[in-house]
Design a protein around this nucleic acid. Sequence first.
DNA 1: TTAATATTTAACTAAAAACGCAACTACTGT
DNA 2: ACAGTAGTTGCGTTTTTAGTTAAATATTAA
Lengths: 111, 111
Amino acid sequence: MPSNLEATFAALGEPTRRAVVGLLSRGPRRAGDLADELGQSAPAMSRHLRVLRRSGLIAPEEVDADARVRLYRLQKAPFDQMRGWLDEVELFWGEQLDAFHAHVVARNGEQ
Amino acid sequence: MPSNLEATFAALGEPTRRAVVGLLSRGPRRAGDLADELGQSAPAMSRHLRVLRRSGLIAPEEVDADARVRLYRLQKAPFDQMRGWLDEVELFWGEQLDAFHAHVVARNGEQ
DNA sequence: TTAATATTTAACTAAAAACGCAACTACTGT
DNA sequence: ACAGTAGTTGCGTTTTTAGTTAAATATTAA
């Protein structure tokens, strides 16, 4: 389950896959149900799920009884990583804006 | 400047473009400087910048003096949209986990 | 006007992604 | 063993993406 930002963002850059994540946020589901709900063929959905699996965003539930059925579940790690990246970017960005503001204030005085 | 999630996530699914965003978070920069710092040819960088522009993640600064130079700057809206989407997903997800926890507690008693 | 600089666009190539259909795997139930 | 169900994979096709070189655009400086 290698969770890398590259694959995560790329996976979410596709509407069907974002919709899959949206549905899975409501609870785990089977591949076939996702295909039906999103109007995709079984092979197409299987491929989307593979992309999502490789990104680490989803994982098949531990198979218990019926191994024909794979219940997919959302994974937290990639979400944390994305938020971490966004936090980092916005942290420096904030400093930049602060510096810009200080610069304006230094030139024009407090508004 | 249509800022849609699809283009935003897709744009960030590429390492060079994420690096561009990282650099721009430290302050606005010219296309040529970004190309140099990231070891990309000018045309390649120009294309990456077009993708980022179309996603809404960056915008060229209002041209002031020298119009040969385009200073690119990060835009907040797409970041807010991404966080909004993540919030929504994790909101439902949280409810799901809460329900699961309640279910476990109901079966096994408080841990 | 001419040269120089910064950036984008055009045309092309190569690699990757997406989708349909058909075939295959793996398991269940009779 | 056989049929049925759930899901994945192989293959051919079409589209998209990323990169290159060369040319075009826009602006400043001489």
